[in-house]
Design a protein around this nucleic acid. Structure first.
Length: 597
RNA sequence: GGUUGUGUAGCUCAAUUGGAUAGAGCAUCUGACUACGAAUCAGAAGGUUUAAGGUUCGACUCCUUACACGACCA
């Protein structure tokens, strides 16, 4: 398809040379796909040529169209509408393109000239509470972008940087020490991450009571927040942890262990994985070394209280804290260490950070600080910033208990998919296990598609009802199209029809057949664009376009019931190829497609 | 206060990066299952793209100002 467009551009460039004796580079021509309501596949916008050629747009279009008709065999017709030259491509050219697609292996990469060694950091949870809806957007985005980069032929490492140290986990630990009574996930029958979360909530509850108490005694709110006994104790605990206090470290290991078990289960359920885990407890010391290095190089400075800062005013940013006065590290400290570790481990030429847009500033600072340190990998860092997920009731707020828990949400979407599927009554013959797997595939398909179809950088609204919907612009709509194709292929196989026969002799294509081939031919450019912009939404839109085009085709022509043998075989092949394309595209999103549903 | 993002149909989202009459889905209305899967398809209705200027053959897109909402930095 890209090749075809390039050829058309070259032909147009030659035509301009021949007809008008003016040189216009092929790349400079303004081309676009022809809009559905006009005949044609490629459109040249001739407005942009009027100055260079000294002629009116219609005149240019007419002259170039006529030249192409006699000089470019692949152009079979044209029409001029105002400043638009619409070019029709010969059917046999479409068939040739289709043939190429059929021959192409499913796992053939789409070369884009982009980065080759990529590391995608995503998920990166705190270990003090279970995953919620916001994490799901993050996880699905990260997984999908990694798959998209893989599809371009890049070597991709999926990394999870677990935020296992810091004040937040000390809060859970402190509350557990006080109120836990030796409870374990087993004894309580609660997933480990949820158990840690329970104690984090308990901390917050008691802490707030202490703050309120202090305020009632006349202490200023800011001071009360800082001096509430539980906060001071949590900070003591953090210092004890950094000093390797045995008891504290023991508790920390125990609670984090529970949390990891919980996370592992959730990751398996939602179908994401990682090639490498990093733990901030293992990177913050290296970060401190980098801070030392910066001090020695004179790019950082120390304030009277002993805290270390970097001045980024020249970069249009601000002064930023790198190490606290008491020597404990902040997020930035450990991020410096992690960046270096990742580079040493994988030598990336692109390092993606899938992090919500509230961290935009932080990520700018990280990159700027690494540049100041003269690190070679600073330029390769890219923040894949995504918008937060809102609920119909507004922002998710843990304090107000409006956070949507990931595990619970997954259960709900699977249950909804199950209810809808059973109601349709089309799955007799499937075993209990197969049914359960299908409900899971459909429920997660709905949820993932719902979260991925929106442009990552935009804030999005999560409507629970729409997220489990199976109709319209949804994952299950696309899955349904695939299942229907799968059914058709099974029947075609029974009839002995070859899916990969040659069809160049086919006399003429139906409109819906031609449009289907055009959609299929877009695959490479979709992958390229999705990889360039790090946007699964582009792949999601394409999967929908494929399904939409196929359903139209399916409604308009007969496949198995077509009497003409050649046409019948071609339509089976077109269906099969569409099924492959849908599967491959959905795979980029981390969504499975069923053989029946 | 400073920096920054967003604003498109009743609702949720698109718009090939400056191109044609701004497209889909949901919701509403109409039609299509004794043709291969109706979780589908065909159609109707729905818009001053927040507002006002500007740039040009052409602006949802770029520039200026204002407004609204969000995030971050103090």
């Amino acid at each position: 398809m890209q090749q075809l467009e390039n050829d058309i551009r070259a032909a147009l460039s030659a035509a301009i040379q021949q007809v008008f004796s003016v040189s216009v580079a092929a790349e400079q021509l303004v081309m676009q796909p022809t809009r559905k309501e006009f005949a044609g596949s490629f459109t040249l916008v001739t407005f942009s040529l009027t100055k260079a050629l000294g002629k009116g747009p219609e005149q240019i279009g007419q002259a170039l169209g006529e030249w192409l008709m006699t000089h470019e065999a692949r152009v079979s017709g044209f029409n001029v509408v105002k400043g638009f030259l619409n070019l029709e491509i010969a059917d046999r050219e479409w068939l040739r393109l289709f043939q190429d697609l059929v021959q192409r292996p499913d796992d053939a990469p789409v070369p884009t000239g982009g980065p080759q060694a990529v590391i995608v950091e995503y998920s990166s949870p705190n270990t003090n509470k279970p995953l919620h809806l916001g994490h799901l957007r993050n996880n699905f985005l990260g997984y999908s972008v990694a798959e998209i980069m893989k599809a371009t032929g890049a070597t991709v490492t999926k990394a999870n940087l677990v935020n296992d140290r810091g004040i937040h986990i000390c809060k859970s630990m402190l509350a557990y020490q006080r109120y836990g009574n030796g409870e374990t996930p087993q004894s309580a029958g609660i997933k480990g991450d949820h158990l840690a979360g329970k104690y984090y909530v308990l901390f917050e509850k008691h802490y707030r009571e202490q703050v309120k108490q202090l305020e009632a005694e006349g202490v200023l709110p800011d001071v009360a927040k800082r001096q509430a006994p539980m906060m001071l104790e949590a900070q003591d605990m953090l210092r004890a942890w950094e000093a390797h206090d045995e008891e504290v470290v023991g508790l920390w290991k125990q609670m984090n262990g529970w949390v990891y078990e919980g996370f592992t289960e959730t990751y398996a359920t939602i179908g994401v994985d990682f090639d490498k885990y990093y733990y901030e407890s293992g990177t913050y010391l290296l970060g401190k070394e980098r801070v030392e290095e910066g001090l020695q190089k004179g790019v950082f400075f120390r304030k009277e209280d002993g805290s270390v800062w970097v001045d980024l005013k020249e970069e249009g940013l601000d002064e930023k804290l790198l190490l606290r006065a008491d020597g404990t590290s902040v997020y930035m400290t450990q991020d410096l260490g992690t960046a270096e570790l990742k580079y040493n481990d994988f030598g990336y030429d692109l390092s993606l950070y899938v992090i919500a847009d509230e961290q935009n500033y932080h990520m700018q600072v990280l990159k700027a600080v690494l540049k100041k340190l003269g690190k070679p990998y600073a330029e390769a860092i890219h923040h894949l910033s995504y918008g937060m997920v809102d609920l119909p009731s507004g922002k998710m707020k843990s304090r107000e208990g409006t956070v949507v828990d990931a595990d619970e949400l997954v259960r709900e979407v699977v249950a909804a998919a199950q209810a809808a599927t059973l109601e349709k009554g089309k799955i007799e013959g499937l075993s209990e296990d197969e049914q359960a797997r299908l409900f899971h595939t459909l429920g997660l398909g709905a949820l993932k598609y719902y979260l991925l179809k929106v442009d990552p950088k935009k804030r999005m609204l999560f409507n629970p009802e729409e997220s489990v919907s199976l109709e319209g612009h949804t994952g299950p709509f696309i899955q349904y199209s695939h299942a229907r194709i799968a059914q058709l292929r099974r029947k075609a196989a029974q009839m002995g029809i070859n899916e990969k026969a040659y069809f160049l002799a086919l006399p003429e294509l139906q409109k819906s057949e031609r449009e289907m081939i055009e959609e299929l031919a877009r695959y490479a450019s979709v992958v390229t664009e999705a990889a360039r912009t790090f946007s699964p939404a582009i792949a999601a839109q394409y999967a929908y376009d494929l399904a939409k085009a196929y359903n139209r085709f399916y409604a308009e022509v007969q496949v198995l019931a077509e009497p003409d043998e050649t046409k019948r075989a071609f339509r089976v092949a077109l269906s099969a190829q569409t099924g492959r394309a849908i599967k491959a595209t959905m795979q980029l999103l981390g969504i499975e497609v069923p053989e029946r549903m």
